[in-house]
């Protein structure tokens, strides 16, 4: 970019970004931790048997809408698959990484 005097180093860039986004930074880091934890509990809940969202919610003690959001996300990124239906509810099971 012509307006910039000298190309800043990577360290300077990261420092500037951390300062600029200080507020969201802390929140996002906490979020990442929480997401990792939830990923673990949900995935372990459906490792052996396929379960519906209400079943998972009950097992992991989370509100069903939130569980559904995670399930949808895991499905999108190939971490779990639909395994038929249980009544009106689709069943989800963890995909083991090869």
């Amino acid at each position: 970019m012509a307006t910039q005097q000298a190309t800043p180093s990577r360290g300077e860039i990261l420092k500037r970004l951390r300062e600029q986004h200080a507020e969201t930074f802390a929140r996002t880091q906490a979020l990442l931790k929480e997401q990792k934890r939830i990923e673990q509990v949900i995935c372990s809940a459906i490792r052996e048997t396929a379960k519906t969202v209400p079943q998972i919610a009950e097992e992991v003690g989370m509100p069903a809408p939130e569980v559904l959001w995670y399930v949808a996300s895991f499905k999108k990124y190939g971490m779990l698959v639909e395994k038929g239906m249980c009544g009106d509810y689709p069943l989800y099971q963890k995909v083991e990484k090869k």
Binding site: A57, P65, L68, V71, Y89, P90
Partner: peptide, 16 residues
């Protein structure tokens, strides 16, 4: 879509 099918967001039920 997010679920690949029609489900209700409250608990993933297929609504009738």
């Amino acid at each position: 879509g997010p679920y690949g099918r029609v489900l209700r967001p409250g608990d993933g039920m297929e609504p009738t």
